[in-house]
């Protein structure tokens, strides 16, 4: 009696397969070339689906597959400010078939502020850095403050009275507010949210007076805010009217740099192969246009330059954190 039910189960399972399997048809394809790579590459995003790292990776995928001749599978492993994915990567196989997004400052900060983040920054080998999201400081459109100087003067004479929204503790936004406080002597109240979107919500609802936000959020919501400063070296292409922190006398840049990384002991030729592929992707004109329209700044740092950059950031960030007593 029961055994006769089996075909029915099979029917349902086949129905499931029929619903889900067509999707593979879209993803099929890809040939082989040379020695590496010969099979699909996993591209791990250490943050949530739908975030900026994810969107960038989804854009890269098409060109990347063309360049490498194999499938590129994007998957997400969010958690612990990226540390979950990076510690898994550092303990995984160093064969180049699993690569992960490398976000600075997160990848540098996590091992600094925690006893055991599961990895050390040195356990990972930077491969290529392709973009920066500058961080800017903004106040509401109806705010009494019109310049960074006014806001900082107010914060100096009223320590802790000015609330600044940002995307979390030990994040790029947190680091930016620490640097601004350190350089200006003003004291703000930093209100961390559980991500960029809730931080923007807190600010737009008028629950905080200012916000530190990534350039793409600034571009998106620019009608409802006054952007007082941006953390680039020179003027930012998407918001040319906004002065930099440096121009206004605060000698620091703030941004989130994105690239990819592999385990430290990955063979040299594989690292170079991936480096070439990402270089080609990043120089793809269509990709550049899309990224710039969204408010990102392009970067073209190869493996060696990127490694140097990470080491420099590591020194800078640990100095700032130590001097501010965060360590």
């Amino acid at each position: 009696m029961r055994v006769q039910r089996m075909p029915r189960v099979a029917v349902v399972i086949i129905a499931v397969a029929v619903m889900v399997l067509p999707t593979t048809l879209f993803a099929a394809g890809g040939g082989e070339q040379g020695s590496f790579p010969t099979r699909a590459i996993n591209y791990v995003i250490p943050f949530d689906a739908g975030g900026q790292s994810d969107i960038t990776a989804q854009y890269q995928r098409e060109v990347l597959e063309r360049e490498l001749g194999v499938d590129v599978v994007i998957r997400h492993q969010p958690g612990a400010g990226g540390a979950l994915a990076w510690s898994a990567l550092s303990r995984g196989r160093a064969d180049g078939y699993t690569i992960a997004g490398n976000n600075i400052p997160h990848i540098v900060i996590q091992p600094l502020v925690r006893e055991n983040a599961g990895y050390r920054t040195e356990d990972l080998r930077p491969v290529y850095m392709f973009q920066t999201t500058p961080i800017g400081l903004a106040v509401a459109a109806n705010s009494p403050f019109n310049t960074l100087a006014e806001l900082i003067d107010h914060a100096r004479s009223n320590p802790g009275r000015v609330t600044v929204s940002g995307s979390g503790t030990h994040s790029g936004h947190h680091l930016a507010i620490l640097q601004l406080q350190y350089l200006s002597g003003a004291e703000f109240t930093y209100v961390p949210a559980s991500g960029a979107a809730p931080s923007v919500t807190n600010f737009l609802g008028g629950h905080t007076q200012a916000i530190l936000a990534n350039s793409d959020d600034l571009v998106q919501h620019r009608e409802s805010m006054k952007i007082l400063a941006i953390g680039t070296d020179g003027r930012f292409h998407a918001l040319p009217e906004v002065p930099t922190f440096m121009e206004q006398g605060y000698d620091f840049t703030a941004g989130i740099d994105r690239g990819v990384t592999v385990p430290a002991n990955t063979p040299e030729d594989i690292v170079r192969r991936l480096e070439r592929a990402f270089d080609a992707v990043t120089r793809d004109p269509a990709f550049v246009t899309q990224m710039e329209a969204m408010g990102f700044e392009m970067q073209y740092l190869g493996a060696d330059a990127f490694a140097e950059y990470v080491a420099r950031k590591q020194r800078e960030i640990s100095t700032v954190l130590r001097e501010l007593g965060e360590l």
Binding site: Q58, A197, Q220, M294
Partner: peptide, 25 residues
């Protein structure tokens, strides 16, 4: 209307919109 997702699935939908070059608002 605002580009702020009300729930986690909506956040992923936002990503899909942005991927297509659409800016909520």
């Amino acid at each position: 209307t605002l580009g702020i997702p009300g729930a986690p699935p909506a956040a992923v939908l936002l990503g899909a919109l942005l991927l297509k070059g659409f800016r909520p608002g």
